[in-house]
Nucleic acid binder design. Structure first.
Length: 483
RNA sequence: GGCGACAUAGCCAAGUGGUAAGGCAGAGGACUGCAAAUCCUUUAUUCCCCGGUUCAAAUCCGGGUGUCGCCUCCA
């Protein structure tokens, strides 16, 4: 995996064999998440899934920042309590993340629940001489930490602090940052040795990551814009406080852009996940996010999502065809799979793993999934399998492969057993819909028998308008909901 | 001013020394009452430009052009 710390790809060697401890910076909950927020969530969810696929025991922590200036400001605007507002948007976060098939982290810590740990850490930093107190504020003294800048690759001398924002004159160095902020009236505040106040932005992640994962944990992830100052500061605090390396591998995802410009809340060019999901299925959004390598920028517009949807449809069709071929056929269970196809399937699994092993190249991995689809479609189209049982067994193996690919990419809905479920309605209505469509198809078939094409086409066209696509095949009529 | 990233067909996008994956869109063929789906074939003598290294470069080096990002909250 590519490690921002060393600026190169490295073989992943966990702190403890077989185990991975991973921390990802989660959202500040003062609004619904936008697509730019969704990228790291989906990307690191996929990283986690793949490590799990590879057999690692993964401990995954993602925080919520529920104390922050933006939350306080927003709460003031809405005349709401900051903590309540933050809690509300945590709930909303889960709705979007669940829709995108993002698995829950093992631990989702919140800043508000870790004030004690944060205060302890700040105390340690003061005791060790890395921090100083001014008027109830505690600042980190960046000049004391020799390695400051090692993650972002910059030197203190090169940075123009204050070039775009006023410098607090009370700081010893313009780059010093707040570990603890004294509270203004009406702000959420906690008692501390330095008076009533609240944590600075960076200290929370250090405190929570160290609490749940310990020093020298394996992977720390987040968006590229967090490299500086957030992650740089996390390193400075944590390594100064513990005297040990903070995290081993730093992973950063690239930005989502709109018209080649970074999508961000401050630019106002963001699209809420909520809004996009009203126009596109969540599976398509996830598929689209994983269609580009995580470190590359990804430009967003509806046209690109539509193209992703059409591409995904191709894979879905293949899975449908496969399920159809397998329906009611279990003679393969006892047989060995057709050797040629089985070998090809093994090869594809190898390609998939090779892609993911190379810095989580999901774009390539999706390409392998397309190759698998073509392989299956071709196999189904050909009639040159002398041994039906062997063919069936191989197809079952192919189904397993789809399931395993999806266990990593998470682009299709799954049942409790991990099997892919297309067109899953989740309602009893589904059976009624099936019966009704079955009836309509029956009527249309009568018309077709009489070569009454205008009636047959009319029915097909009207159903299409309703989102039901009919396919006449030599073996009968097939229907599906439009993807 | 400092630091960094990217530039591959109409579009999206893999590919870090060995002779251009995959998807969308397009073209032709098979199948079909017509469609759809699927299969087969086809679409970049070439990877922003100019030099250099090498038997060999989209891939390495130097220069240039363009786009973007970080240095402030931001995923």
């Amino acid at each position: 995996m590519y490690n921002t710390l060393t600026r190169q790809k490295e073989e992943f060697k966990p702190r403890e064999p077989g185990k991975v401890a991973m921390y990802v910076c989660g959202p500040t909950t003062y609004n619904f998440i936008h697509l730019g927020n969704a990228r790291p969530i989906v990307v690191f969810d996929t990283v986690r899934r793949y490590l799990k696929y590879k057999g690692f025991d993964v401990r995954y922590v993602q925080n919520f920042t529920d104390i922050d200036d933006k939350i306080i400001n927003r709460a003031r605007e809405e005349q709401d309590d900051p903590l309540k507002l933050a809690a509300r948007y945590v709930d909303e976060y889960y709705k979007d993340a669940d829709a995108l098939h993002v698995l829950r982290a093992d631990i989702h810590p919140k800043v508000s629940g870790h004030i004690t740990e944060i205060i302890e850490m700040v105390k340690t930093l003061i005791e060790k001489g890395y921090a100083y107190v001014v008027d109830g504020n505690v600042y980190y003294d960046v000049r004391k930490f020799a390695a400051y800048g090692k993650l972002s690759g910059r030197a203190l001398e090169d940075m123009q602090a204050g070039a775009r924002v006023d410098v607090d004159e009370r700081k010893r160095d313009p780059m010093d940052f707040a570990l603890w902020k004294s509270a203004k009236p009406g702000e959420p505040a906690w008692d501390s040795p330095w008076g009533m106040g609240r944590p600075g932005w960076h200290i929370e992640c250090s405190a929570m990551a160290l609490k749940y994962l310990g020093v020298g944990f394996d992977i720390h992830g987040g968006g590229f814009d967090l490299v500086f100052p957030h992650h740089e500061n996390e390193i400075a605090q944590s390594e100064a406080a513990t005297g040990h390396p903070f995290a081993r591998y730093w992973m950063h995802n690239g930005f989502i852009t709109v018209n080649q410009e970074k999508m961000s809340k401050s630019l106002g060019n963001f699209f809420l996940v909520r809004e996009i999901l009203s126009r596109f299925p969540p599976e398509v959004v996830r598929f689209y996010l994983l269609g580009t390598h995580y470190r590359s920028p990804l430009d967003f517009d509806d046209e690109k999502l539509s193209a992703a949807a059409r591409g995904m449809e191709r894979i879905k069709n293949s899975i449908r065809l496969l399920e159809e071929a397998l329906a009611g056929r279990d003679e393969g269970a006892a047989s060995r799979p057709d050797p040629a196809l089985a070998a090809r399937l093994d090869e594809l699994r190898g390609e998939f793993e090779k892609a993911m092993d190379d810095d989580f190249n999901t774009a390539l991995a999706i390409g392998v999934m397309f190759d698998l689809a073509r392989e299956i479609n071709g196999c189904l189209a050909r009639q040159d399998f002398p041994n039906k049982a062997e063919k069936t067994a191989a197809l079952q193996k192919a189904r397993d492969l789809f399931r395993d690919f999806n266990s990593v990419l998470g682009v299709f809905k799954t049942g409790a057993d991990g099997d892919i479920q297309l067109d899953e309605e989740g309602e009893e209505d589904q059976s009624l819909v099936e019966e009704l469509i079955g009836l309509i198809i029956e009527v249309r078939q009568e018309a077709r028998k009489k070569k009454d094409w205008s009636t047959a086409d009319h029915i097909r066209d009207r159903l299409k308008e309703m989102g039901i696509v009919l396919e006449d095949t030599p073996s009968g009529v097939r229907w599906k909901k439009q993807g």
